[in-house]
Design a binder for these strands. Structure first.
Length: 234
DNA sequence: AACCCGTTCAACCGCACCCAC
DNA sequence: TGTGGGTGCGGTTGAACGGGT
């Protein structure tokens, strides 16, 4: 039993936006600001779903958006972050000013994924295909696969530390640390996650030192690993 | 010119989460 | 504490476009 639809889908316009509709959104936001998107169609005089209006604004009309091609630096950033946290597009986009999660996701699916494949690298694990196949051949049982983050979590902790080697001091690691710290601080400061929610992971992973937890791991990886642990427990 | 096919990306969908009541 | 509405997010779709034949 799903949620009821947010609007009368049969009677709202769908598909590409016209310049006139864009102008109405822009005018509305200019005078009223952002918020309560369900009221926007009515107040702005649009025959659109509020959700559709929000999407049009966040992905296309926002004045701070870049509409030019991704730079090599941005590309490198996406690759590094995807390698670490998987398809957390919104998290990745937050590190790229002027880019949306939709931008990043599209760029990944249309360009970067193919680029990696052409280079002989598995876009899921970011390892050479040869290595992936070799490791796959050694697996005796089924791995625990988290589809969103591509994280395999066997019941041994050395594997965790191998896949999340955040304690080294390379520029890449420091860069990733910063993003993770930002996210962790945000989540802990807003009480999104209590320590008890992540403790199953910490207690089971001897390579993680709880005292340095906030500077050595990520919300994304921790959350996904905890999720896997719960799955395993049941 | 017409058709086919691959690529791109704006837009949609459904689910999960958050929060006010 | 439970419920429902609003919002955020990731996956998917499909129209538009361009290049090849």
């Amino acid at each position: 039993m799903g949620r009821p639809p947010c609007c009368d889908k049969a009677n709202v316009k769908r598909g590409p936006w016209t310049a006139e509709e864009d102008a109405k959104i822009l005018a509305y936001v200019a005078t009223h600001g952002i918020g309560n998107w369900t009221l926007v169609p009515q107040k702005a005089g649009l025959n659109r779903c509020g959700k559709s209006c929000r999407l049009r604004w966040t992905n296309y009309l926002r004045p701070d958006l870049k509409h030019d091609n991704f730079t090599p630096q941005e590309e490198e950033c996406i690759l590094e972050l995807h390698k670490t946290i998987g398809s957390r597009w919104s998290l990745i986009a937050k590190q790229l000013p002027g880019r949306t999660d939709n931008d990043v996701k599209n760029y990944w699916n249309t360009k970067l994924k193919k680029k990696l494949v052409n280079m002989g690298i598995d876009p899921v694990t970011h390892k050479p295909f040869a290595q992936v196949f070799a490791e796959y051949g050694k697996i005796s049982g089924l791995p625990i696969q988290n589809a969103r983050n591509h994280i395999c979590l066997p019941n041994n902790t050395t594997e965790i530390s191998r896949q999340f080697p955040f304690s080294s001091g390379t520029p890449h690691d420091k860069f990733v640390h910063k993003i993770m710290n930002d996210q962790l601080q945000e989540n802990y400061s807003t009480q999104k996650y209590s320590f008890s929610e992540v403790s199953p992971l910490i207690s089971s992973a001897t390579s993680f030192d709880p005292t340095v937890f906030s500077s050595s791991s990520s919300y994304a990886s921790v959350q996904s690993q905890v999720r896997v642990n719960f799955t395993y427990d049941h």
